[in-house]
């Protein structure tokens, strides 16, 4: 899923400062699962905004609404009947959702309430960890299901570097060393011979480095 963090409240209030009629838009997908921008978080943020405005005696009217999926133009269109009743749209979706809404309603000022941070998975309740960088050329077969491009701080393909200690990355004791995990798995699977292969220089043109990427499936286009 895509994981995000809510922006600091102060920053949000600064963006909303000149506006009284606010549409607060959540998303039912990833940001709901990672508890940052679903219906629940929309309600909490709306309440916080109201409390803050009440305290400062500045009127506000907030419409709380959560879309099935903000990154899909079909769902984005579903709010067209009331979007014009509001001066600003503040989206709690990931950057993809914010942009879809902004592209759908070009005359509207659309601002983000969250900082989109990574593609990751849930490790336990309340803990999410980055797992994939979308490099466009997956090597998880060679590294037995642990991505060094993402999970090694230096994206080393022939690791571990000299900073791996006690299973942790040199940058932070709470960050597991991806290469320690890979080696543990290689041993467990009796596949240590894979470790001796030198991973060649990677072709990064399939990743963001090759420029913004587009995927097209002609058979699905209408």
């Amino acid at each position: 899923m895509i994981v995000a963090n809510r922006k600091p409240f102060e920053e949000i209030m600064e963006m909303l400062k000149p506006y009284k009629k606010i549409l607060l838009l959540g998303c039912n997908e990833c940001v709901t699962v990672c508890s940052v921008g679903g219906a629940k978080e929309v309600a909490v943020l709306a309440s916080e905004i109201r409390l803050s405005r009440l305290k400062n005696i500045i009127p506000v009217e907030i419409k709380e609404h959560t879309l099935e999926r903000q990154c899909d133009p079909e769902y984005a269109l579903s709010i067209s009947s009331f979007v014009n009743d509001y001066e600003i749209i503040i989206s709690m979706a990931c950057g993809c959702g914010v942009q879809t809404i902004a592209e759908t309603y070009r005359e509207k000022y659309v601002v983000p309430a969250v900082n989109t941070t990574f593609m990751g998975s849930s490790e336990e309740h309340g803990v999410w960890r980055e797992k994939c960088q979308g490099c466009g050329n997956c090597i998880l077969d060679k590294t037995l299901g642990i991505c060094p491009v993402t999970r090694c701080a230096k994206s080393i393909l022939n690791g571990p570097c000299g900073g791996s200690q006690g299973g942790s990355c040199e940058i932070n004791k709470d960050t597991p060393c991806a290469w320690q995990l890979i080696i543990d798995r290689l041993k467990q699977m009796n596949m240590m011979e894979k470790y001796l292969e030198i991973q060649p220089v990677k072709d990064w043109s399939t990743s963001r480095d090759g420029g913004p990427r587009t995927r097209i499936r002609e058979d699905l286009r209408i």
Binding site: A153, K154, S155, I156, L157, N158, C161, G163, I171
Partner: peptide
């Protein structure tokens, strides 16, 4: 060498490269 991560240095907000690793 691969190099120490920039978070140790005087410009921790820098973008790193790591296009290739030390063995490469």
């Amino acid at each position: 060498l691969s190099g120490d991560h920039q978070s140790f240095g005087d410009h921790p907000s820098a973008k790193n490269v790591f296009d290739i690793d030390s063995i490469q």
